[in-house]
Design a protein around this nucleic acid. Sequence first.
DNA 1: GTCTATATACCGATAGAC
DNA 2: GTCTATCGGTATATAGAC
Lengths: 251, 251
Amino acid sequence: MHKMDFQTFTKRYDISLERICRDIFRSRDKTIRIKKEETAVKNLTLILDAALNLSVEKGFDAMTLRDLQSRSGLSMGCLYSYFSGKEALLHLMQYQGRNLVRDVLHEVLKDEAIPQNKLEIAIRAHLYLSERMHKWFYFSYMETKNLGREEARKAIESELLTEAIFVDILDEGKQKGVFFFTDARLVAAIIKAMLQDWYLKRWKYKKRQIGVEEYAAFLITFTGKALGHFPSDLMSGTASPNHSSAGGEQI
Amino acid sequence: MHKMDFQTFTKRYDISLERICRDIFRSRDKTIRIKKEETAVKNLTLILDAALNLSVEKGFDAMTLRDLQSRSGLSMGCLYSYFSGKEALLHLMQYQGRNLVRDVLHEVLKDEAIPQNKLEIAIRAHLYLSERMHKWFYFSYMETKNLGREEARKAIESELLTEAIFVDILDEGKQKGVFFFTDARLVAAIIKAMLQDWYLKRWKYKKRQIGVEEYAAFLITFTGKALGHFPSDLMSGTASPNHSSAGGEQI
DNA sequence: GTCTATATACCGATAGAC
DNA sequence: GTCTATCGGTATATAGAC
């Protein structure tokens, strides 16, 4: 998928809360007591939407099930038909978010061979994903520390997997003589840090009216220069205007 | 302060928990009911040490005052002689950490004139500070969202102040023709993101045996290349060995 | 499937003995 | 200055009516 921008990205991949909830229902029929798919998906959407918003506002820990009750419009008893407890809800959301990110990242890269293009695509896909699923990314990052032993291990594994994608691209580019650096893992680590800043410091970029396309172009130029590779059409530093909300409502 | 490394940094600046607690006692004699300085500083040190460790382990919200009681060795009633409530403790710690960082950053930069050196010093000082006060930095970052309206405003102000230091250095370098970029605030923002990665993803760098000197050298080289400025003695990419623990126990 | 009502436990905070 | 004992409030979770 070349010459990708935010709009074509959101059109190509169905990243909606409803779709995620349907995936959850189909893969977790044991822990969810409700039988009818339509009812289950509708209520799951209400629950996850409320839980995401409350978690971003005040933190998952500070969110009480009474908050979740009133925000979702469902009752206490009804909530417990969809998950076995507050902790199970946390794990459910973390798990589903991780898998979606992993799948999309592999999907966008699968038909590309040129390292410079791969790097640009991986950066853009990660930024676009976190733009589309901003609350989800913010939530996943902030609540990692509250996970239990086994779940924390999976979160770390996921972090390293994303990084490994960048390490592979960098090493390939180094071998082909288009990237210049000494330690691929260090470069991948700070690329990841810069990607994460986009959703962790969203308030800052929003206040400065910097959109996702502009940030993407800047990041690609900056890393390109640092790696000794200069993307031809981006060196001017001019970026597209802000249309960060072109892809519909954020989830 | 030129040719700064971690060891000389920690020797030059007294960044100990005891010193911070003494500052707190002297500046807050109204909210602390204890009169004798020796007693007060001793117990404050116990309290803050326990609070920092518990917050990093499970989060400030999840930490109960009973946890704090057993970890510090003091009783419930005694704790309340040192702060008026859990929220006041949070604000106290945030406030004191912010001020120390602000003061040290201004101190290290005050006698330097060359932009390239300024950039290197600012990067090193921030990394060394966060290395020395790792728990403090991690705590400050993670608990920002739990602050009240007014305190959150101060935290944001502090974030932007640190960034402004980098913006000034970058603009000066651009004017003098040694740095090349289009938007100083974007560059400063991602430099900050890379600095923060050092204390937010500490587990990763520790596992890979990357010390603070090595990370500092890498960051300076990477940003130097991206800005079109090549530090002469760092281009080889070779870095000092890991002596991240040379400066005593972390706080 | 969804609701209300309630059980049980633990939180932050304080009063008052020592 | 420091302790123990306890209050009032609220959390998660469940039982059983509809």
